[in-house]
Design a protein around this nucleic acid. Structure first.
Lengths: 226, 226
DNA sequence: TGTGGTATACTGGTATACCAAAAGCATGAG
DNA sequence: CTCATGCTTTTGGTATACCAGTATACCACA
């Protein structure tokens, strides 16, 4: 096999175990590392030009984020998301993010609201023909901004964790223009509710939005053969 | 300094990094390791009779669980929960566990329900004069059983994670008999709703229960001076 | 006596060497 | 030809040695 990573990785940036985790995380989220693919410590270490130690620590950290599964005495592998997991994960997202939106409407300061607006602008300015991953990242940024605006550190952490797991799927979505447009309008409506300081409305609109995404995701995820 | 741990630790059980994590976790939850207390790798390793490697891995894992905070290039320390964090954590518990109870009412199989009943029996049979930690553990077991019964792996993981953080506080609660009795009755009512397969009722009763606990916790946590 | 700089000791970060267990393969017996 | 068994290779787990950053204490100098 030719190697784990895409070729544009600068080895100089690899210094710490966090850097290693960042790279592996990116490769998982981008889909370059596929579900169930074994991550062998020595191979990763050699390719990244570091020793096994920071690689192991990175894998431990990624396990905590739910992206990697550590099979004791065997190997680490990219966590596989089964179709059954998908509904459970989206159900949890619904609960977490609706709560986040509600809290954001109550507590978000002006900086946090500005940050949300920024992610919306970035999403709007995406070219029509951009990749699935770019779309997924822009969407991700919006939802991360909402949970950050909730003012709850723990909610932000947990929410991003669950969101990150879904991201492993989304780079393989087929994004249709109609769906993209709908999602964007829902995002705008959620932000409006937050700016109006209307928690109930923010809650309801976020719930509806995630429900839409859920229905769409269940139909549109491309399950690749390995 | 005399050492991190209580004296009844069997060094033989310390074999793997998971074992190390178990011990440190237990000591944090029991309150023997206090918030903000630095955890120095060499000291931990020496006391547990292992090398620094499994200790570091344990600390990484515990960071993922939210029990330990890793300050790069300085040290690891027991995560401090501020009074402000408490409301945020309990608010999140409310959302997560109400969802878990609702799901449990829908999907729990008979084995899972039996497990919940078992935790209730254990709670009932606690002696009147038992320690705060024993009470906290029994309560913890009930809530863990609920999230396990939800049938959602991710919900169980996330829920236990948040629950675990609260556990660092609860060993320092003052448990009053009236409160204990009330909580037990609420637990019974939640189980009843689950057995009736009434998701809305389970949701409502769990919400009410966590709300009660929240109000109680905010008044009763003993903030110790360091 | 107070202040600042330097030296030293301590701590986490990384690399490497060694160990034990698991998996794959080859070989030989049925 | 097939299957079982044992050996070899591969892999994760642990211990140890070394490196780099940080804090602190002590000493020189103002």
């Amino acid at each position: 096999m030719s190697g784990y990573f895409s070729d544009n990785i600068n080895p100089v940036t690899v210094r710490t175990s966090e850097g290693v985790a960042d790279i592996i995380r990116r490769e998982i989220l981008s889909g370059n590392l596929k579900p169930d693919q074994p991550l062998l410590e020595r191979n990763l270490a050699q390719e990244l030009g570091v020793s096994r130690t920071p690689v192991r620590e990175a894998l431990f950290a990624l396990q905590g984020e739910g992206l990697v599964e550590l099979v004791p005495r065997k190997y680490a592998r990219v966590r596989k998301i089964t179709p059954k997991d998908i509904s459970q994960i989206y159900a949890l997202r619904l609960v977490l993010e609706a709560h986040a939106a509600e809290s954001a409407a109550r507590y978000a300061d002006s900086a946090a609201i500005l940050e949300i607006e920024t992610t919306l602008l970035r999403q709007k300015s995406l070219p029509k023909n951009c990749s699935a991953m770019e779309q997924a990242n822009a969407d991700l940024a919006f939802h991360a901004a909402i949970s950050a605006a909730s003012g709850s550190q723990i909610l932000k952490t947990v929410s991003n964790q669950v969101l990150g797991i879904t991201a492993t799927l989304r780079s393989r979505f087929k994004y249709e223009p109609a769906q993209t447009k709908l999602a964007f309008n829902q995002h705008k409506a959620i932000l409006a509710a937050i700016k109006e300081r209307n928690p109930e409305l923010a809650f309801a609109r976020m719930s509806e939005h995630i429900q839409t995404s859920t229905d769409y995701a269940k139909g549109k995820v491309v399950i690749e053969e390995s």
